[in-house]
Computed example of a mutant assay.
Amino acid sequence: MKTYELQAVARNEKGKTVAKKLRRQGMVPCIVYGGKETIHFATGEKELQKLIFTPEIYKVEINLGKEKITAIIKDIQFHPVSDRILHIDFLEVLPGKPVVMEIPVKLEGFAVGVRDGGKLHLNSRKLKVQGMIDDLQDIFVINVENLALGKTIFVGDLSYDKITLIDPPQRAVASVKMTRVAKEEEKPAEEGAEGAAAEGDAKAEAKTDAKDAKADKK
Rank of each mutant, 00 (worst) to 15 (best):
K2P: 05
T3S: 06
Y4P: 03
E5R: 15
L6N: 03
Q7E: 12
K16I: 03
K16A: 05
K20D: 03
R23C: 03
R24V: 05
Q25N: 11
V28G: 01
P29Q: 02
P29G: 02
Y33A: 07
G34N: 06
E37N: 11
H40R: 08
K46P: 00
Q49E: 10
I52N: 01
T54V: 01
E56V: 01
I62E: 05
I62G: 04
N63I: 06
K66I: 12
I69N: 09
A71C: 06
I73F: 01
K74A: 02
K74D: 02
D75Q: 13
D75H: 12
I76R: 02
Q77C: 06
Q77G: 01
F78K: 05
L86F: 08
H87R: 09
H87L: 05
I88V: 07
I88M: 04
I88L: 07
F90G: 01
F90W: 07
L94V: 08
P95W: 12
G96L: 08
G96A: 05
I103K: 06
E108A: 01
F110K: 07
F110H: 08
A111Q: 07
G113D: 06
V114L: 05
N123A: 14
R125D: 00
K126Q: 06
K128L: 06
V129W: 05
Q130H: 03
G131S: 07
D135C: 04
V141R: 11
V141G: 00
N143V: 05
E145A: 14
E145F: 09
L147Q: 04
G156Q: 13
Y160S: 05
Y160I: 06
D161V: 11
K162W: 11
I163D: 08
L165Y: 11
D167Y: 09
P168K: 12
P168G: 10
Q170S: 15
Q170A: 15
R171V: 09
A172D: 13
V176N: 09
T179M: 14
T179L: 12
E185F: 13
E185Q: 13
E191K: 10
A193F: 10
E194A: 11
G195V: 09
A198N: 04
K203E: 12
K203D: 04
A204F: 09
A204Q: 10
E205C: 01
D209G: 01
K211D: 11
A213V: 14
K218I: 12
K218V: 11
